[in-house]
């Protein structure tokens, strides 16, 4: 409970969650919020931002702001589905490996290391390109199927250290069944690690999906921020100086990725207290004449109240 409060008091986490909330709102209400139909062509070809088209139009006069608003859903749904499926696989593999030990552990670890070492994006491209139709959900599942390894690796290490703790040993000595032991004693203690793995996978999934759309593997009629960049790239937006075509979409991806990273920082600081920056605010320290340094404890002779 105290940890959760701490989590929400963290400035990074609050910023991250606020941005995520904003994009989630776009994803849910997108079709109602967007000023135009993103596929509706108009006479305003490749026009810069104006009062009628806040973020300008593309080469066939479609409204870019509408494309971004509608595209948010495609991005978030894929991120969520891929994140959930990869996390499920990661938890299954990682916790099992950490808990069973021995040969089972060796082979499961080798399996997740293999998936880590094999370059995922080319593999995803290879699979997606050979599928008859690589829609959003399919891509999400492919990303989930290849992107679970990092989470599994971290979870395995964490489970291994948990397994040796007293309370787990005690429950085991009491003859508690293994699956109960895992559900009741181990998983609750892995929450932070699982959450951080989930957020990391969502980040990876969003970037992968956007990349796949950008190189034209997913259907170009399905709007997401990568699709916008695909159209921009293929219609020489760069050479024509149409910055409004490719800057906002990329900025949205970066903003979303940053929000996810910020949330993950907060989780990391809970898992690894050494990273906590509590009380280390550069400005207030400088005001008090404290220069935090490793190896030279600051001496500040202040008047004690």
């Amino acid at each position: 409970m105290r940890n959760q409060l701490l989590f929400l008091r963290n400035g990074k986490v609050v910023t991250g969650l606020a941005i995520l909330g904003f994009f989630t709102l776009l994803a849910v209400l997108g079709p109602w919020l967007s000023p135009y139909d993103p596929n509706q062509v108009s006479d305003a070809l490749l026009s810069p931002p104006s009062a009628t088209h806040w973020l300008g139009t593309d080469h066939t006069g479609r409204d870019i702001l509408s494309q971004i608003i509608v595209g948010a859903r495609g991005v978030l749904v894929v991120g969520l589905v891929a994140g959930v499926s990869a996390t499920v696989v990661g938890v299954l593999v990682g916790v099992t490996a950490g808990f069973v030990g021995g040969v089972g552990d060796e082979s499961l670890s080798a399996l997740s290391n293999m998936f880590l070492v094999i370059p995922q994006l080319p593999l995803i491209i290879l699979i997606a390109a050979q599928l008859p139709s690589a829609g959003g959900l399919t891509v999400a599942l492919v990303i989930g199927a290849t992107g679970w390894a990092w989470g599994a690796r971290v979870l395995r290490a964490q489970t291994l250290s948990l397994r040796k703790r007293d309370f787990v040993e005690a429950a085991r000595a009491n003859g508690e069944r293994t699956w109960r032991l895992v559900l009741a004693e181990v998983l609750p203690n892995l929450t932070a690690v699982i959450a951080s793995g989930f957020v990391g996978t969502v980040t990876f999934a969003v970037l992968s999906q956007v990349t796949l759309s950008f190189i034209g593997i997913t259907p170009v009629s399905e709007w997401n921020w990568g699709t916008i960049l695909f159209w921009a790239q293929n219609n020489l937006a760069l050479q024509r100086g149409a910055w409004w075509w490719f800057v906002p979409a990329g900025a949205c991806i970066a903003l979303l990725g940053m929000a996810l990273t910020l949330v993950n920082f907060g989780i990391d600081e809970i898992v690894n207290p050494r990273l906590r920056s509590t009380g280390l605010h550069a400005r207030s320290l400088r005001r008090r004449g404290i220069r935090p340094r490793v190896g030279f404890t600051p001496v500040v002779r202040e008047v004690r109240s």
């Binding site: 280390l280 935090p292 490793v294 190896g295 404890t297 600051p298 500040v300 002779r301 202040e302 004690r304």
Partner: peptide, 16 residues
């Protein structure tokens, strides 16, 4: 011992 040699790591602070 650490403070007397100023080896106390942050957020240790010698106040007097």
């Amino acid at each position: 011992a650490y403070a007397a040699t100023r080896l106390l790591p942050p957020p240790g602070l010698i106040t007097g």
